[in-house]
Amino acid sequence: MHPAPSIIAFTVFSGLGFGMLAFLGLGKPDVSGFTGFVFFFIAFALAVGGLISSTFHLGNPQRALKAFSQWRTSWLSREGCLAVATLSIMGLYALLIIFFNTRVPVLGVIGALFCLATVFATSMIYTQIKTVPRWNHWTVPVLFMGYALTGGAFLTGEVRIAAAGLITMGLFQVIAWGLGDGRFAASGSTIETATGLGQIGKTRMFEAPHSSKNYLMKEMVHQVGRKHATKLRIIGLVLMSLLPWAILMFLNFSHLMALVALLAHIAGVLTIRWLFFAEAEHTVGLYYGQRG
């Protein structure tokens, strides 16, 4: 699939934002007044910023409100509704803390749950896509929520949780890649099933329908070279997991180093998220001679 920057930014930053809000909802750290404002501001900025960037790839963003209507069937719609709900709950929660210096734990816990639900909904937008076998798998929600929480912990200074998260996510990501690599083959879709010509024999594309590229190919028939992908996977892992983990564990804590670690982590997540799209193969590729 085409790794659209707007989508990568959306998933990564809204994830971080909601992850951070989740922790704040649980009172970790128990902030108030101006510090509270700063923390909540960062969290909301990330969440809302992410959501806004998601509208950049819309053909008709001015109609975005319509996207709240189909929560019964559509995960994208659900994600929208949940995001708004979450932001309002946490908004109220934040107001009370910042201006009235009162933390309503119940509200915070509910908010935290909504944060998770929102990230889960985001992940389901991809997980539900059967045509992309690599996505169509339980590991995807786990990854999305895992990254959100790890990042959230990181941003709220929950160093121990963050460190644990970093290493588990590193391991889990490796497992997820392993599982993902076999998914397309396992899905059973081949150029033969796509064309039904398997009954006759081995099938290959002879001529594409048009000599020029079209929307489908640009959007869904994106390809990354094996080598290139492996390289990026390693870079992604080091940045996302190992490096920040090492910094947190072995260097004595300094805000500067923490910042470096955080930035490394975010860069890593961005890289891995780029791969999440770039490595995802869509069945339509079969019609255009991919895996043919």
Partner: peptide
């Protein structure tokens, strides 16, 4: 809204 999700969902 032109989100393109339906095109992703279509196998064909």
């Amino acid at each position: 809204i032109g989100c393109g999700l339906c095109a992703w969902a279509c196998p064909y």
